[in-house]
Design a protein around this nucleic acid. Structure first.
Length: 361
DNA sequence: GAACCGTGGCT
DNA sequence: TAGCCAAGGTT
């Protein structure tokens, strides 16, 4: 990391001409850089852009974020996925104010101590917002390095990571780490693509060992994933009349785990040998302590999570006996249909909400 | 080390 | 359709 490596010079020259124009690149505000970094974890740039604008309008500073309710934060994040990111940011904002005087931390150790910030995001923040000489190692950069040097090690094994870090340290241009990291990310996102890379337009094609050996398609080396299960799930929409309007019951999921802190219509997985009706009756008894009669079907909705696929069957339900209590949820609440839009929900429950609003009496 | 954690786009 | 993947982090 002393003199400018020829490969790094090519990269920086290419970046100077071809860098993507992105909203978070118009500032060096550490808070804005942080927001973008977290949103971009496992998430495409095109998906993030509208969320980033909305977030920076709604929570323009660290203080506005810290002073907002978790519900408002989750609502702003709805649809972006991996909701622990939003919960972690809300928590981290409070910690920065409480423990660091409201000044965004600029050292690696402190950044890594904050929830939601790991080595990759920390290196990006330090290099981009603070100009520190720190190499980032994310999915794009791993792929680019694995091809440039035709690494035979399996992705994310200790040997693979060790070689990547060593190579990046040799390449890292002093004083230009932010541009260097982002140039590798842009190269990975636009040219050194996972499937078929666009080697004809790559500024590093002459330096690329995988291209020379025609091994691009098998770099980096990855292991096949296990097949994901497909489960049948039921959800119940409990109804009650309140004044002259109808209310439905929603429940807030525990803060940890899948869709933590998000609201949902209670229900659960169908067990082997169980009918959908029986499954729903059982689930609502377990989660709310009520006996119900299953009414008309609201709809069937399909959705794919990372580790399983769901077909969800939603029904209107009527309470036969018992008063609902939050046995499995953090909180339950009766709300009118127009109010549903204000409660943060995952994709499936939002689909149920939308179907309810359109449902004829 | 491996499982878990969302969603949308593309093949 | 089902699989793959995307600026990862936590447990």
């Amino acid at each position: 990391m002393s003199e400018l490596h020829p490969l790094s010079r090519r990269l920086l020259d290419w970046y100077a001409r071809h860098a993507r124009s992105l909203p978070w690149r118009e500032t060096r505000d550490p808070y804005a850089t942080w927001v973008a970094e977290i949103m971009l974890q496992q998430t495409r740039v095109d998906t993030v852009i509208p969320y980033y604008h909305r977030w920076m309008t709604r929570f323009p500073t660290l203080h506005t974020l810290a002073e907002s309710s978790l519900q408002d934060v989750l609502a702003c994040w709805e649809g972006l996925g991996y909701y622990s990111r939003a919960r972690s940011m809300h928590r981290a904002a409070g910690l920065i104010i409480r423990d660091h005087g409201g000044t965004f931390p600029s050292d690696l150790h402190t950044l890594l101590s904050l929830p939601g910030i790991g080595s990759s995001s920390a290196a990006d923040i330090l290099s981009i917002a603070f100009g520190q000489d720190m190499a980032a190692l994310d999915g794009n950069i791993k792929r680019v390095i694995a091809r440039l040097y035709d690494l035979p090690d399996e992705l994310d094994t200790p040997a693979f990571l060790r070689r990547c870090r060593s190579l990046l340290d040799e390449l890292l241009p002093s004083g230009r780490a932010g541009d260097f990291n982002q140039s590798l990310m842009d190269l990975g996102a636009g040219i050194c693509l996972p499937g078929v890379p666009l080697c004809d337009t790559c500024p590093l094609s002459e330096n690329c060992l995988a291209r020379e050996r025609q091994s691009q398609a098998t770099r980096p080396v990855t292991r096949p994933r296990a097949a994901i299960p497909h489960v049948q799930v039921t959800a119940g929409v409990l109804l009650q009349s309140y004044n002259h309007s109808q209310q439905v019951l929603i429940a807030r999921r525990p803060q940890s785990g899948l869709l933590g802190g998000m609201w949902e219509f209670p229900g659960g997985k169908q067990e082997a040998g169980e009918s959908l009706d029986a499954s729903l009756i059982r689930e609502l008894h377990e989660e709310l302590g009520v006996s119900v009669e299953v009414g008309r079907k609201v709809g069937v909705f399909k959705h794919a999570y990372t580790h399983f696929r769901v077909t969800l069957h939603a029904y209107l339900c009527h309470i036969l006996s018992g008063e609902p209590s939050a046995l499995a949820a953090d909180e339950i609440r009766w709300v009118t249909l127009p109010d549903l839009s204000g409660y943060p929900m995952g994709k499936l429950d939002r689909m149920i909400s939308e179907a309810l609003v359109k449902l004829p009496d």
